[in-house]
């Protein structure tokens, strides 16, 4: 009986987390309507982080796995950041100390022929 009560509680817990996720979804849609860049960043990407945290913790139960599982996933994230750090300068900068991109790779050429 006690077990049954516990299970009911845990199902209610999942439904509560789902309701919070939906509320956060609404905020992430309404936030950018204010058209303030800082608010858009916080409501769109800040809330995405919170939603991901809630899903990972409460639905995937990462917090009750052995610690090394978190390290395993974190290692993959670090590799993703390494990829970003290693390639972003090439993509995001148009010139550096001893190099510059050819004219056909510069912003103006990319804008051509793309509007529909």
């Amino acid at each position: 009986m006690a077990d049954h009560a516990h299970e009911e509680h845990s199902e209610q817990h999942y439904i509560r987390i789902w309701a919070i996720l939906l509320a956060l979804l609404v905020v992430s849609i309404l936030g950018p309507m204010l058209e303030i860049q800082a608010v858009t960043l916080v409501t769109a990407f800040g809330i995405a982080l919170v939603k991901a945290y809630l899903v990972v913790k409460h639905f995937m139960h990462l917090n009750v796995q052995p610690q090394y599982v978190t390290y395993l996933l974190a290692t993959a994230l670090v590799f993703m950041l390494l990829l970003f750090a290693g390639t972003a300068p090439d993509v995001m900068k148009w010139e550096g100390q001893h190099w510059s991109k050819p004219a056909n790779e510069r912003p103006a050429s990319d804008a051509g022929g793309s509007h529909h």
Binding site: A76, L77, M80, L81, L83, F84, T87, A88, V91, M92
Partner: peptide, 9 residues
Amino acid sequence: GGILASYIM
């Protein structure tokens, strides 16, 4: 992560 990081940059 690779796709999203490339998109973001």
